[in-house]
């Protein structure tokens, strides 16, 4: 049984901030992020008959958004992006203190520079708070891969924002993906 239309709209509107964050995280560029969020919202409305009440709505919406993003990548022929530092700084504007703001801006730069696989995994775990299990299911990869990707995303962002680790070696890093 599908959710009532009013209930579905309510859930969708409630999810808009997270949908935007996820879309921006996938698309890297703010404008492309807004476009993706908008396509995803419109697509979700058309697909609402396929949502089963009781299942996680955020996961359903993320999966649908990710599919749209993958379609877009395929169509455009994925290419490396240029990160505009000014945009990054502006995006972090309302942060409270200057140093933290700059560090958040650098973290965003580092996040956007991550390879797609690391970035989309980190978006689900670090930003959206999904478990490794939920993330693995959504992405169709083993849990170990999720663990490794999140760890490498963190390490890469930390290196960029905080500099090289003083103690050198990071133990047994895995490179299965």
């Amino acid at each position: 049984m599908a959710a009532s239309e009013a209930e579905f709209r309510r859930m969708l509107v409630e999810m808009l901030p997270r949908l935007r964050r996820y879309a921006h995280a996938l698309a890297r560029e703010p404008e492309a992020g807004e476009d993706l969020a908008q396509s995803a919202a419109a697509h979700a409305l058309r697909q609402q008959a396929f949502y089963t009440p009781g299942l996680r709505f955020d996961v359903w919406l993320f999966r649908l958004t990710r599919n749209l993003w993958i379609d877009q990548l395929r169509r455009s022929g994925a290419r490396p992006e240029v990160v505009d530092t000014d945009t990054v700084l502006r995006a972090a504007e309302p942060a409270v203190d200057m140093e933290r703001r700059l560090m958040a801006a650098r973290a965003l730069t580092a996040f956007r520079a991550l390879p797609d696989a690391l970035r989309e995994t980190a978006a689900l775990v670090l930003l959206e708070g999904l478990t490794y299990q939920e993330t693995a299911q959504l992405l169709g990869v083993p849990i170990g891969t999720v663990m490794s990707r999140v760890s490498r995303a963190r390490a890469s962002i930390a290196r960029f924002v905080l500099g090289e680790a003083p103690h050198g070696g990071h133990g047994l890093e895995r490179h299965d993906h």
Binding site: H24, A91, E93, A95, A104, A105, F111
Partner: peptide, 9 residues
């Protein structure tokens, strides 16, 4: 910091 970076959005 990554979460903080997305907070304004």
């Amino acid at each position: 910091l990554t979460r903080a970076a997305f907070a304004p959005l």
